[in-house]
Write a protein that binds this DNA or RNA. Structure first.
Lengths: 256, 256
DNA sequence: CGGCGCTTTGAACTAGTTCAAAGCAAGTGG
DNA sequence: CCACTTGCTTTGAACTAGTTCAAAGCGCCG
């Protein structure tokens, strides 16, 4: 079952993601140990599966380029998208619970990942306490994200959810040096819907409305954020994006 | 800010929760170290706050008796209940993300907790690798739970949600040796609603319906599970609990 | 007793779903 | 190069699960 290919160039030290990835804040000499542990996995093609739910937990994976999506499966066959993972982000932690993964992870586009064999990670943590606390920090951040996600699913309207989703993507784009206003969504409407707890039709309609109101420029899977501030307001429920509110929309509404 | 009181009796070795709590699976000699680190906190009264969101992360807490509820706060003032914590369960892990807690935690009834000062935990992890992996396992399980929670908020009907909630409580009751059929809900309808992403009125109506259909016997905050198997079916969406389906009709006697 | 907070129930409403159909873009094979 | 398939997206129209608003009931405690 070893698809891991070692020997490829992968030095963390020279990696563009060093500052946002697991090694962030780890001293240079310890970094060399991590470097040695990291395996480069054969690149994934779009739609290719990194691991299936239920598979044995052997590695943690770091996204180097591309994008991943994780989703859990209900016994009735339905799927729930749990998250999207951009370069610099870590996936596979849930496997630590019981030695098997609880989610499947699939590539949304051609993707490269670094693999960290679990055994090596555990050994290393004893010798490199910084790694241990870094890992703890990352897991805890994961938890915080999940809580945000729950809070969103709990009480927010469809508009608020989509706005929050776009802003989160935008921020993460910024973190890795991409243009935070231009988003290339690599996932389908129905995947966004599943992630946000909405029907795909609802997502599609929202994009149309937000486009019409001038918040976004939507062209298929390419989205341009035209008014980030307004989007932030929508996200916090301070604005109802249905009624115009924006210059671009139809203005001939005779106010009551 | 140290409200921690040491010196009270608290030996893990003699604790009834040993097998379900953090120390599960940790060898006896290492256990003594943990034992020494654990501080007993003054008992919390109902509604008393263990820590506030934003407070510095100083301790992990283990529930000894009673029950806790954690909730996050949106900037608009609304609250989202993130979870309920029964004896043997750990709270406070989210604080590891940035040195402050992201949730507030409050007691639902008179509650005792054990406190594990963070500094001691970190020191110990270096010497007791079992503790490190135990902690990792617990955090990862947390993640898995959060994912279940998200999956529930995403696509399940109100009935399915409430059924899943009750079954989860029931299982956890069983784990700590309580009767899994008789639940004393220590939280209000609106707290359950927040947790499940429903209005409090909806929760109340569901209890009434499930009572009427003979699934449950509900008397205020005391719930008796009459037909666990059927409840499990509702939870998996195999049954629509609106239409009768059940012989037992209205019988509003308080469970003995 | 009287007041307060929680719960229940009813009735009206609406945000979002579902179902259905058409539009579009990319790929495939003749 | 075009016809055809396939999968995603958009849009419309009808529907409904769950919300919201309102009011009454119930327990509890000072």
């Amino acid at each position: 079952m070893h698809e891991v290919i070692s020997g490829l160039r992968h030095a963390c030290v020279s990696c563009g993601l060093r500052e946002v990835c697991l090694p962030a804040g780890i001293p240079a000499d310890s970094l060399r140990l991590i470097d040695a542990a990291v395996r480069q996995r054969r690149p994934l093609r779009a739609r290719e599966v990194l691991f299936h739910a239920g598979a044995g937990f052997e590695c943690l994976y770091l996204v180097r380029s591309g994008a991943l999506m994780s989703c859990s499966h209900e016994e009735d066959g339905s799927e729930q998208v749990q998250g999207f993972h951009l370069p610099g982000e870590l996936v596979g932690l849930d496997g630590m619970a019981g030695g098997r993964h609880g989610c499947s992870v699939v590539a949304l586009e051609p993707t490269n990942v670094c693999a960290l064999p679990l055994a090596l990670v555990q050994d290393m943590m004893v010798e490199v306490p910084e790694l241990q606390s870094a890992l703890m920090r990352i897991i805890a951040r994961e938890t915080v994200n999940d809580h945000l996600h729950v809070a969103m699913m709990g009480r927010r309207s469809a508009h608020e959810r989509l706005a929050a989703f776009l802003l989160s993507l935008s921020e993460r784009h910024a973190r890795i040096g991409r243009d935070p206003r231009r988003l290339r969504l690599t996932m389908s409407r129905s995947e966004i819907g599943s992630f946000l707890g909405l029907a795909e039709e609802t997502v599609s309609r929202l994009f149309s409305r937000m486009h019409a109101s001038g918040l976004l420029e939507v062209c298929g899977r390419t989205v341009l954020i035209r008014d980030g501030e307004a989007l932030r307001q929508v996200c916090h429920g301070q604005v109802d994006p249905c009624r115009p509110g924006h210059a671009h929309a139809r203005q001939n509404h005779p106010p009551a």
